[in-house]
């Protein structure tokens, strides 16, 4: 039997670890008839930082990792397209698009590892302490914590004061008013107590697209993959790729319902920004897209083509994928 070390930054009690990582590992163990065994190490138990996880898989420090490629901005520039504002509304479909995008126009982005899955989380949205966000103007002067480079930029264009801080500092910063709000998907809400610490939540009508999402990658050490017996390789292959990516995206967006319920139970105000009201946000946020395209051009890629490819792939898979559960409808 082969033992694989699975390493990630997610906490052992988190939904991602329990419903996605553990579920995936158990399925692989079962499909291999017990010939593949996993040792799971959540919460960076084997050292390093989340940013370094990808290199740990590349270098064979561990065998499989699940991490945020967007943490190292300059390293995977082309996949950042999925983190631009108002790209998606369905994590399952967008995860499929992300997988296909990397296979077709960004293949060498993850060439150092055996990529098992590429996925995104459900719709990101506003959570604010004292003021409900209905229009873009409502953001003026608010101190809002941004998750990624592109979204932090967008918050500035929308008139907010973007604040950069690591995710675990959100509860403290919210409770003391160091920030007035943050943008995260529902799924993350309970783990950083945003349901307790804010009163207002502003979702976007899926028809107009979600504010943003974040990309994830599950990758395996190449040499380890190549050393597997052919039938075990087949087991890994069957549990990776487009369908697995879609499944991870779907499960993660499904977990949004859990987070949303905590806010409902606390009788917080949940507002849906209509597709019409979203226009003003989009108009101001468009500059993020423009600058990203310019940045790609500078790096020697065809920025416009990459953006169009991502958009058309999201649209294509959106048509063939059922509307997402979780989020708004829960």
């Amino acid at each position: 039997a082969v033992t694989l070390k699975f390493h990630t930054f997610m906490a052992p009690q988190s939904n991602v670890w329990l419903t996605m990582h553990k579920a995936w590992m158990e399925k692989v163990e079962k499909d291999s008839g017990g010939r593949i065994k996993f040792e799971g190490y959540p919460a960076m138990q084997l050292g390093g930082t989340p940013v370094q996880l990808y290199d740990q898989a590349k270098d064979g420090v561990v065998d499989v990792v699940w991490t945020l490629p967007g943490n190292t901005a300059g390293r995977f520039p082309r996949i950042e397209v999925f983190e631009l504002p108002f790209m998606m509304n369905n994590a399952e479909a967008t995860s499929k698009a992300y997988w296909e995008y990397v296979q077709t126009v960004a293949q060498d982005e993850f060439k150092d590892t055996q990529v098992l899955a590429l996925q995104v989380h459900g719709p990101g949205m506003f959570h604010t302490k004292n003021k409900l966000i209905k229009t873009a103007d409502d953001l003026r002067g608010l101190k809002v914590r941004g998750p990624t480079r592109q979204i932090t930029k967008m918050l500035g264009f929308l008139g907010a004061t973007p604040v950069g801080m690591p995710l675990p500092q959100i509860p403290d910063a919210l409770s003391k008013g160091t920030i007035d709000g943050c943008v995260i998907p529902w799924e993350v809400v309970p783990s950083v107590k945003v349901d307790e610490l804010t009163k207002f939540h502003s979702e976007f009508d899926p028809a107009g697209g979600a504010l943003y999402t974040t990309t994830f990658v599950m990758a395996m050490n190449k040499a380890k993959y190549n050393s597997l017996a052919p039938d075990l390789k087949k087991v890994i292959d069957a549990n990776s790729g487009l369908e697995t990516s879609a499944w991870l995206g779907k499960v993660q967006q499904g977990n949004d319902a859990v987070g949303r319920k905590t806010a409902v139970d606390r009788k917080n105000t949940i507002h849906t920004i209509s597709a019409a009201d979203a226009q003003e946000f989009k108009r101001k946020a468009r500059l993020v897209e423009v600058e990203w395209v310019e940045d790609m051009n500078k790096r020697g890629f065809d920025g416009k083509k990459l953006l169009d490819t991502a958009k058309s792939l999201i649209e294509k898979h959106g048509k063939s994928t059922p509307a997402a559960a979780g989020g708004k409808k829960a």
């Binding site: 940013v51 967007g70 943490n71 190292t72 901005a73 300059g74 390293r75 520039p77 941004g146 990624t148 480079r149 932090t152 950069g164």
Partner: peptide, 13 residues
């Protein structure tokens, strides 16, 4: 070689 930068500022590591 891999252009690793910090997430928000893009400061080269």
């Amino acid at each position: 070689q891999s252009n690793s930068e910090t997430q928000i500022m893009g400061f080269p590591e």
